[in-house]
Design a protein around this nucleic acid. Structure first.
Lengths: 202, 202, 202, 202
DNA sequence: GATGAATGAGCATTCATTCAT
DNA sequence: CATGAATGAATGCTCATTCAT
């Protein structure tokens, strides 16, 4: 099922969905700043007014799209994490959910990379901060439950996320921008193993 | 010595330097798109005409700044790599040079992150591609010399750069955007060790 | 009793009244042009459609408000004039009714000043002209009855209204915009005396 | 000599003058809010950019025009006042300078009436307040010199300006909007006499 | 009658770029 | 070489008004 159908499932939200889809396409193709409201309007055949009615702003549209991606990614992560029993399972869940989400929603992933800076400096920066705070808290709880951090004594907590996800993110970026060819899912296991080793928890 | 004094060392280039410095400040503070030529003019007290005389247009200024950063970073990497004897030395050289450069030139590093997408889609995309090609070739040569890749048989070559530098890059991004506090140089060794372990070459 | 209750006394007109009151507030606070239908809707908690149902369009609302003020002011003037016996009484009636109305309905007076130009150039300009014509005729009749104009021989008729009401209007404007402090009713007698003297009819 | 030539006499300010003249015409013909920058641009055959270069804003243009009128009117008033010896002379100077200015610059006078409210609520409200303060102070000085206020003991000072100028202003407004036909200069003496009588200083 | 989503013409404003001086 | 006034296409956004439900 499509990401947007998950986020806006009702019938009445059809227009909203079609605006978002058109915006995603335009933003990814032309770049966020280079995309004009008129381009989006053309792409989904509505009126300028309708776009503003539903999203207030160009920045509101950018943010709505970004938060939709964030939530979808979060949902997959939680799903994977719920099945995890051990610390190693947890690391796998993070790496796999990250890679699978990017590989399945490359457009949304691409958008997420380019929109983050925009949202983080725009009028929705507070909402972003808050969502990040909540997400980090949830992750900490999960990892506390799993006893992660014990095996990797000595590693500063603020370093751990980079060790777990850094390589995957780096490869996914390279893939999305065409610098490497192979689909990241082909390296799921390698990247999860490498992340685990990098934690020195072997 | 300052990055710009290295790149534009002559006396006559003083104006060029002061424009670049002002532009860097503005771009980092306001964002590249949000910065107007007028803002830069104000910040370095020249005329619009002078800016256009030296850099042709805004994208020329963005690119000049980006390539200056790239070259400075390259120079440090080469310096570190020249002292490397073993594969492990090479990994350390990459990680250390990356971290040290970011930590010493945080403004340039910040700019590099935000400008890459702009340059990669602007009129200087070819020059960027070419520079990347040259850099990758150099790196490959160095690593071939050091016999890197032998100990890590089985790892796809296109994955290796992400394994080496991914975590460091991830942490540096987090540091530049204030999400973590500790200066990345504090974790130089930890990150290099983790990178080495992640390669499975222990 | 409230101006609007006088103009729209029935129970069924409650909504109409609440729209007018909200519009008056908004127009005075933000200015007529700066006030949007949406602001008015918010202020009286109806729907856009309801406003258009009752007043056809924004200019209809502006005019309805203006004519309501005009009628209320007219009613008071007639009331005062009906008690007048002499020319001097007539001048007093005009000055006092003007001042008392402004002092008792400052919001409506303020609105009247700012709306006149709008109505006089909008689609209701004819209605305004007609109402003015009728009012002037009535005044002329009253003054003819009282024999006004005899004592002040030599004064051009078109100058007389300005001599009678000019100073009061000037002071009331100053009071409404905060340039003077004292309530105009404090100067009722002084202004009426001055008007009388200015007619040279002493 | 034209009002604008007095305010912007240099050769280089030619464009500025032509913009102001075009704006005055448009504002008076269509109304300030109804006038678009494009209309003004057409009327003086420049570019939008030039208008913004010289006046920053539509509101800047409105204010520049308003202050130019104010200064021109002030200059005439000072000129007339300088020749005054007695209180009666002073009253005449105020009434005559007011009437003469309106009659000689009807477009500027009309504009002044409609622009005052806009400027008083716009971003230049402070400048307007300050200019008013200075003007009032000057007037007070002049009248103190002339011993005005002595003969009219008992009249509250804040009422005096309305008594002096109220009737003239009222008649001028009526003339500018076509409600009366006779040019106000025809009634200069009558209005000055009436003002003097209204002060009760006879 | 009431509602409010949808419409789209219209506007102020910006800003990279040029070029006469 | 330097200057900065002038250009004008392009854009985000507003808001009165309509009309299907």
């Amino acid at each position: 099922m499509d990401l947007l159908d998950r986020s806006y499932p009702s019938r009445r939200a059809e227009l909203k969905r079609s605006i978002l889809r058109a915006a995603l396409d335009c933003f990814n193709t032309q770049g966020i700043e280079a995309t004009t409201i008129e381009m989006i309007r053309l792409a989904c055949d509505t009126s300028v007014g309708a776009i503003y009615h539903h999203f207030t702003n160009k920045e509101g549209l950018v943010a709505a799209l970004f938060f939709a991606a964030m939530e979808d990614q979060s949902a997959l992560r939680l799903e994977y994490l719920e099945a995890a029993q051990t610390a190693r399972d947890g690391v796998n869940a993070l790496v796999f959910s990250y890679i699978d989400w990017v590989a399945n929603q490359p457009d949304w992933a691409r958008y997420q990379f380019s929109a983050r800076a925009v949202v983080a400096n725009g009028p929705h920066k507070e909402e972003l901060r808050e969502r990040n705070r909540v997400r980090n808290q949830q992750l900490q709880q999960y990892f506390a439950q799993l006893g992660v951090g014990e095996g990797m004594a000595g590693l500063p907590p603020e370093l751990v996320p980079s060790l777990i996800i850094g390589s995957s993110e780096s490869y996914c970026r390279a893939w999305l921008s065409g610098r490497v060819q192979q689909n990241p899912t082909a390296y799921r296991e390698l990247l999860a193993d490498a992340a685990w080793r990098s934690l020195g928890a072997g």
